[in-house]
Design a protein around this nucleic acid. Sequence first.
DNA 1: CTGACTGCAAACGTTTTGCACGGTA
DNA 2: TACCGTGCAAAACGTTTGCAGTCAG
Lengths: 132, 132
Amino acid sequence: MDKTLLLQSYDLKATPQRLEIVGALYVQGHLNIDTLYSELKNKFPSISLSTIYKNINTMIDKGFLSELKIPSEKNLYELIKEEHSHVICTQCKKVTDIHLNISSLLQEARNISKYKFQKSSIILNGTCPECF
Amino acid sequence: MDKTLLLQSYDLKATPQRLEIVGALYVQGHLNIDTLYSELKNKFPSISLSTIYKNINTMIDKGFLSELKIPSEKNLYELIKEEHSHVICTQCKKVTDIHLNISSLLQEARNISKYKFQKSSIILNGTCPECF
DNA sequence: CTGACTGCAAACGTTTTGCACGGTA
DNA sequence: TACCGTGCAAAACGTTTGCAGTCAG
């Protein structure tokens, strides 16, 4: 993935801090502010939390980052790729992407509610194989 | 619904404030803190926000209230009844309950992930018939 | 070279806490 | 009556803002 190109394609300057944010999210999938902050601290000891917040917000505004709100957990941030759902282990709190076919679910919801659906946020809570 | 009995069955004293909180949630479905606060202000002009927070938290701990986190909206609170999903209108922000059959979705998720699922949180975003 | 970005400090809004008083069981 | 719950004020927390200096394009 060309991080510089990604940023520039959204009219954002490819600063070292932003490259690192995008890189961390690309490699690790979902990160909360604190984790992101400590990751970045390693490379830029003088980075400030507000830089991270500002960048996350602009990336969300630009439309290539999304915020994931999880009941009783801190918000996570992830680069937007294809639509997908999330599973969370109740024990170890690990968050994983899962690609579910939700077309029949949406169909059913459309029949019942008469809404026109644009987006869905599906989070499944369970116990992962390692935590059984 | 006997609000006093509900509270007592969870070892909580049936104070007027709590009865009103439960009543408001029972009638209105989902409420955020601010709405709850202004509702209660009518009946108890001297009620404090912290009373509401404390009560909501204890009710969540006791297990008969749940917190609904919606992307870019304030958290909503609802009494726990049968498992259900939520649809939110992108335009008017109205939140409605919907009962979807998610057994095949869970089945699929179980096959893919090997998780044992206990809970699901499904939020569908769309446009409601009135907002077309 | 210039506008966009960073880092600091301060401000802000929301939620939690400590404590004295009051009310439920 | 004993303890739990309330309301107030203050503290804590997460996030945003303003600003001066810096850097990418």
